[in-house]
Amino acid sequence: MSDHSFELKGSLFPLSVLYCQDLSAAAVKTQLQQKLAQAPAFFYRAPVVINVESVTQVPDFEAIAQVFKELELVLVGVCGASAEMKKLAQAAGLASLQLSKSKTPAKESKEKEVKTEAAVAAPVMETKVVEQNIRSGQQIYAKGADLVIRGTVGAGAEVIADGNIHIYGTLRGKAIAGAAGDNQKRVFCHKLEAELISIAGSYWLSDSLQGEYWGKSACIGLQDDKLVLADLL
């Protein structure tokens, strides 16, 4: 006989991930304060995970947790931790999360520049240009670059870029820009009929894209984690 008042179910929640080269409590505090100043409302009591993959020195988790408490952020745990790091994090009462193989490939590339701020001063990106229609079931990924599609992106297709995405046709599928986490990247298209648009991990489904820009040319960006639609021209 099952007790329906108590159930443990698996669920997926998007969490912000902090990448920071210097994990000394002081550095973390300064960086976080700067970031919070940009968008205080969004980060209020936000659950955060720290990526410790490229960190060389073992951080003082207790001190960092204290910083988070002061800044009214919730430190959930770490990800990308080595066995040793894991033990230490857990000792400090933090969870060790599995770095999953997600569609945003930034987490996979180990030689990727470690970010100290969310806005990356990226190296010169070579634009990937695709001169054909993207069909249902196909996927294009422009790693570390902008993506230009000279054609239509069909329903059921996915176009992904670490940079911006420009579609000189109709977007009916999914467009994922700023895949590496850069929220300044945008999606430009000639006709907006998208299934999904994502910028730096935040996404909107076609329901949220309805309105005066649906079926027309548009430029889609992220501002204060809110979707902003604007004229293409």
Binding site: R135, Q138, A155
Partner: peptide, 13 residues
């Protein structure tokens, strides 16, 4: 129409 789109993708790749 959607399945035809899929098949077109196969034809080109």
């Amino acid at each position: 129409v959607r399945d035809s789109d899929r098949i077109l993708g196969m034809l080109s790749s």
